[in-house]
Design a protein around this nucleic acid. Structure first.
Length: 314
DNA sequence: AAGCACTGCAACCGCCACCAT
DNA sequence: TATGGTGGCGGTTGCAGTGCT
């Protein structure tokens, strides 16, 4: 069934003229819109309501940001796309003043090509096979990788408990300045993104070295705890890439559920929120008495005596 | 200068979900 | 419950602008 308003004859199509823009802007500004299907008639336009809506949302709305995307916006798009996939409307919500159409066009015309040029599959954010083979012999290669679907089907967002997560300051001398912003207001993922993009680096890093034990019971190709390093084809471990002073693992001792020694710029929360969908039985046990559990709908993380938990919103 | 290929982006199309009747 | 109207979304198209030969 088509749209009622679009089935009427004498509906103009194609690019909007300045006069049409003016009519639509004036009408919406003065009267708002109760029903888009009634807007063309009331505004004196020979367009269908759907076209009016699109024109207003994508071009005439006063709160739209104009001009090129900034590097920060680009980073945000890549990060959120890594999590959400082609959910342009959701991605656009992280970019005030940008529309889903704009983000989609930018992705298709620019970011996609950049990722491909860098050897990443723009759909999955994984290394393309050809690049994987090239880097296979390099155990410390820094890469980006991610799952295709970050959230369980029908989930809208990720929710963390509201407590600010802090490592016990006196329990491990290797960890300093180790406040991790684990905070994310309910259903406000944007807050989390903003915090991570703007926070001082030390807010999100462990300084020093931590030894990890990765116990991974779902060791198949798509197991992907977070994003970051490829240790081998089957075991992927990670941290955030967006932070400055991001350091590579100092040592990789063994592959496949054994110990890893990392220069631990480890647990960025954004990364931790990734990947549980595909590794429901994964447990991560850093030797510094930290634990994290993940499953499809819930996860939790212990650091010393502090305990954090969160869940997906279904 | 002309013709062609490529690119970016505005707009459209088709589908789905939701709501009112 | 079925149906129709509508809003919203992602995929796709078409065209104007640009660059290359």
């Amino acid at each position: 069934m088509g749209h009622h308003c679009c089935s009427k004859q004498r509906v103009k199509r194609g690019l909007w003229s300045p006069e049409e823009d003016d009519k639509l802007s004036t009408h919406i500004t003065n009267h708002g819109h109760v029903s888009w299907s009634s807007v063309p008639k009331l505004a004196g336009l020979q367009r269908c309501g759907k076209s009016c809506r699109l024109r207003w949302i994508n071009y005439l709305r006063p709160d739209l940001k104009r001009g090129s995307f900034t590097e920060e916006e680009e980073r945000t798009i890549v990060e959120v796309h890594r999590i959400l996939g082609n959910r342009w409307a959701q991605i656009a919500k992280h970019l005030p003043g940008r529309t889903d159409n704009e983000v989609k066009n930018f992705w298709n015309s620019c970011i996609k090509k950049k990722l491909l040029a860098q050897g990443f599959d723009p759909n999955t954010h994984n290394l393309l096979l050809s690049h994987k083979n090239k880097s296979k012999s390099k155990t410390k290669t820094k890469t980006k990788t991610a799952n295709h679907h970050r959230f369980p089907p029908n989930s809208n967002s990720l929710v963390f408990s509201d407590d600010h997560h802090q490592l016990p300051s006196d329990t491990n001398s290797e960890l300093q300045n180790n406040t991790i912003n684990f905070e994310c207001n309910t259903a406000d993922y944007n807050t989390q993104m903003h915090n991570i993009n703007n926070a001082p680096t030390t807010d999100y890093q462990f300084l020093g070295t931590s030894s990890l034990n990765i116990s991974n019971s779902v060791s198949n190709n798509d197991v992907n705890l977070c994003d970051g390093y490829i240790i081998d084809e089957n075991s992927i471990w990670s941290t955030t890439r967006s932070l400055e002073n991001f350091e590579q693992p100092t040592q990789t001792t063994q592959v496949g559920g054994a110990d890893y020694n990392y220069d631990a710029s480890l647990f960025d929360m954004l990364s931790i929120s990734y990947g549980f969908e595909d590794c429901p039985s994964t447990t991560i046990l850093p030797s510094s008495s930290s634990q994290m559990y993940g499953d499809m709908e819930q996860f939790a993380w212990c650091e010393g005596n502090n305990f954090q938990c969160g869940s997906y919103v279904l």
